[in-house]
Design a protein around this nucleic acid. Structure first.
Lengths: 197, 197
DNA sequence: GGTAAATCCGACCATATGGTCTGTATATAG
DNA sequence: CTATATACAGACCATATGGTCGGATTTACC
C-alpha cells in the first residue's frame, strides 16, 4: 500500500483510539517506521492530514455503516433496526471499543477547531438528510404513522445512537446493546403505521 | 474564595471547554494570575487535580441537574421530561455549549486513563441507579406499564440524552431540543400505563 | 545511461508542557 | 520577639511536539 494511504489509515486508527490532540505525528510515524520527511512530504500539516482523513476514510466509513444500509424501499424502521444492531454488534466484538468515531471527534473538536468542525458537521448533515429521507419514504409507503415528525425522529435516532455508543464503552457493552435495542423497538412500534393490514 | 476552590472551578471550566489534554496547567494559572507554586502546593499532579474536580464539582453538578430533579413520588416520566427539558434549555441559552460534560469526559478518557475512567463511571452508575429506581417506583405506583424493562429504559434515556447534547453543539440547538423532546414524549407515551384512569 | 522528478531520511529548531525546587511573605503559636 | 507552618512566587529542567530543511535514495522517462 502506498505510504500516503498507510499514513491515513494508521492515523485514523490512532486518532480514534487516543484522540487527535493526544496523538502525535511521531506516534504515527513510529508505528509505520517512517520519518518526518515522509509525513510532511505528503501533508502540509497535522490539521491538513486530519481533514484528508475525514474526507477519504471517515466519510466513507460513516456512509457504509450508517447510511447505505438504510437505503432501499423496505420498511425504514426495519432497516434502521438492523443497521444499528449491526453497528453495535461490531462494537461489542471489538476488543477495544472507543465509541462512535464521528461522535467522538465532534466532542473533541467542538469549540476548538472550526475548520475541522465544518467537515465533521457535513458528515452529520448527510447522515441526517438520509435518515429523514428514508423515514419520509417510509411514511409515504405506509410503514410509518402519518403523524410522525420525520425530522424529529431522525434527531432522536441520531442522538440515541451517539449516546449509546458512548455508554457502551464504559461497561457491559453487550447488555447495553440489548437494552438499547429493546427500547428502540418500543419507540419504533409507537411511530409505525397504526393501520391493521 | 480560597485559592484551591478557584483553581478547581476555573480548571473545570477550561477542561470542559478545551478538553483535559488540550488545557495546560499554565492556562489555568494564567487565567487566575497564579503561579506554578500555588498549583503544586495544593495538588500532587494534573491528574490528581482533575480527580478532585470530579469528586468535588462534577459529581455534585450531575447530581443537582440530572439526579435530584427526578427524585420524588410524582410520575417519573413527567419528572424526567422536565429534568431533560431544563437541562437542555440551559444549554440552549448558553452562548458556548460544549455538550454534556460527563459524556465529553467519558469520550476523552476512554482507553486513555483508567483511574479517571473509574471515577467517571461511578457517576454514570449513580445516575443509572437513580433512573432505574425512579422508573421502578413509577411502575409500582401505576405510572408505567407493568411490562416495561426499567433497566433498558434507563439505558435508552441516558443514551439519548448524551447523544442529543452532543448533537446540540453542532447546529440549531433549539430546534434539536424541540425535536428531541417531542420524540421523547412519544417514547414515554408508549411505556406509560395503559390503564384508563 | 543520464537526468530530473518524486519520495523519503533524520538532524535540527522553537515552543510548550508537566513537574521540581529554592526562596519569600504572611500568619500563627509559644 | 522568635520560630515554625502555611501559602505562594517564579526560575528552572527534562521531555515532547509540530514543523523545517538540506540531502540521500529511488523511480520514471528519454
Amino acid at each position: 500500500m502506498a505510504t500516503m494511504q498507510r499514513l491515513q489509515t494508521t492515523g485514523l486508527e490512532l486518532f480514534y483510539a487516543k484522540g487527535y490532540y493526544d496523538t502525535s505525528v511521531d506516534d504515527i510515524l513510529k508505528k509505520l517506521e517512517l520519518s518526518k520527511g515522509a509525513f510532511y512530504y505528503h501533508f502540509d500539516s497535522k490539521e491538513d492530514f486530519f481533514i484528508q482523513i475525514i474526507q477519504n476514510l471517515l466519510a466513507r466509513k460513516i456512509y457504509s455503516t450508517l447510511i447505505e444500509p438504510i437505503e432501499g424501499h423496505d420498511n425504514p424502521l426495519t432497516l434502521i433496526t438492523k443497521c444499528f444492531d449491526d453497528a453495535m454488534e461490531t462494537a461489542v466484538h471489538n476488543e477495544l471499543d472507543y465509541g462512535c468515531i464521528l461522535s467522538n471527534f465532534l466532542t473533541e473538536f467542538n469549540g476548538k477547531n472550526e475548520v475541522i468542525m465544518r467537515h465533521l458537521n457535513e458528515i452529520v448533515t448527510v447522515w441526517e438528510v438520509n435518515l429523514v429521507t428514508a423515514l419520509q419514504k417510509g411514511k409515504f409507503n405506509g410503514y410509518l404513522d402519518r403523524h410522525v415528525d420525520c425530522e424529529a425522529a431522525a434527531t432522536f435516532l441520531m442522538s440515541s445512537y451517539f449516546g449509546v455508543r458512548t455508554l457502551m464503552t464504559s461497561a457491559a457493552p453487550s447488555a447495553k446493546k440489548y437494552r438499547f435495542m429493546s427500547q428502540l423497538r418500543q419507540y419504533f412500534k409507537s411511530i409505525e403505521s397504526k393501520v391493521i393490514s
